[in-house]
């Protein structure tokens, strides 16, 4: 019983923390972009414009909840929910601090990959059900982009899995006590662009591409449903940044400060890089993006995997898997 209460409390805590932080992210992104673009950014609502997300929320909640008459109604309504649900579920396996995680799964990495793959449905279904050409083109782009970047996103993590000898994210963090994994495994440099593509943010925001496709897959959305996509994007950014922290930057490990603070600091730093990229880079064309994925990233991911594996084999004569190579099939 006590266990259940503890779990429920953890879930509630994680949910509230995530939703608050993604709201804060809206403010952070707008302020940072403004800083880099020689303008003020939000500065009207509250001190430093900090309550801007609250004002946005009120606006979005009170807007007319309109579904275009030509849309496929049930799917249209379902699509924005999918992205929020899948991203939030993916956080279940995320170790924020020792012991602070919702589900300590041995297949944590695979669970994350599965959930982030499911979030494609949101983009595809939104594009399809809107029954609009711009949304359809956005949805198609989204599907193709995420399918291809999924592949080497998975491959780039495998180096880390080899090093840690586990799919469990907690174990992966623990295994980084001596050295953060971005040093021995260059998977970070593959995972990062893949994460950008996964969250479809500039420069990989082709499914939205407002100069070309108006707003891409969510062209027809407004009000709260649009807000779901909006929050979903920021949750996605937080997810990828937390994942990078956990897999490559030692997770909550760090001296002096409490582990949770380290986790937040590292994740925050990664998010700032995300925003900086958005402020500085133009958007490649669709075929260039796909070409980059298949022709550059995939071979790199495979080479990275081979090299990492080779190094491990060379350095350790002990069996790679804890459990002496007799690991039970999952």
């Amino acid at each position: 019983m006590q266990g259940i209460i503890a779990s429920v409390l953890t879930i509630a805590f994680v949910l509230i923390a995530l939703l608050t932080s993604s709201a804060a992210l809206i403010w952070a992104e707008r302020s940072l972009l403004a800083l880099w673009q020689d303008r003020y950014g939000p500065n009207r609502v509250g001190p430093l414009g900090l309550f801007q997300p609250v004002a946005d929320m009120i606006k979005i909640f009170t807007k007319d909840d309109w579904v275009p008459p030509f849309a496929d109604r049930p799917v249209f309504v379902l699509a924005p929910a999918i992205i929020v649900i899948t991203v939030l579920t993916a956080f279940a396996v995320m170790p924020f601090a020792p012991g602070v995680l919702v589900a300590d799964m041995d297949i944590g990495v695979l669970f994350f990959l599965a959930m982030s793959s499911l979030s494609i449905y949101s983009v595809v279904l939104a594009g399809w059900s809107s029954n609009s050409k711009y949304a359809l083109l956005g949805g198609l782009r989204g599907a193709a982009q995420m399918l291809s970047y999924e592949i080497f996103m998975g491959l780039s993590i495998m180096g880390v899995v080899l090093l840690a000898g586990s799919f469990n994210l907690n174990d992966i963090v623990e295994a980084q006590r001596n050295m953060w994994f971005f040093i021995p495994s260059s998977g970070l440099f593959i995972f990062f662009p893949a994460g950008l593509a996964e969250t479809h943010r500039l420069p990989f925001d082709l499914p939205e591409a407002e100069n070309e496709l108006v707003a891409g897959y969510h062209t027809e959305y407004s009000g709260l449903k649009f807000g779901m996509f909006y929050i979903g994007e920021y949750l996605g950014v937080t997810l990828i940044a937390s994942m990078i922290t956990t897999l490559f930057l030692g997770g909550w490990l760090g001296p002096v400060l409490p582990p949770a603070v380290w986790f937040i600091l590292k994740t925050g730093a990664v998010i700032v890089v995300f925003i900086l990229l958005r402020a500085s880079l133009p958007r490649p064309r669709f075929d260039q993006l796909m070409g980059f994925g298949w022709k550059a990233m995939l071979p790199l991911a495979l080479i990275n995997l081979l090299v990492t594996g080779g190094i491990i084999l060379a350095l350790t004569d002990a069996p790679v898997f804890p459990g002496g190579g007799n690991a039970e099939p999952l």
Binding site: D38, R39, L281
Partner: peptide, 16 residues
């Protein structure tokens, strides 16, 4: 022009 290519920042700087 930069904005059309998806670059967010230059347009603010040049307008300035």
């Amino acid at each position: 022009f930069a904005q059309d290519l998806g670059q967010l920042t230059p347009v603010f700087l040049t307008f300035n």
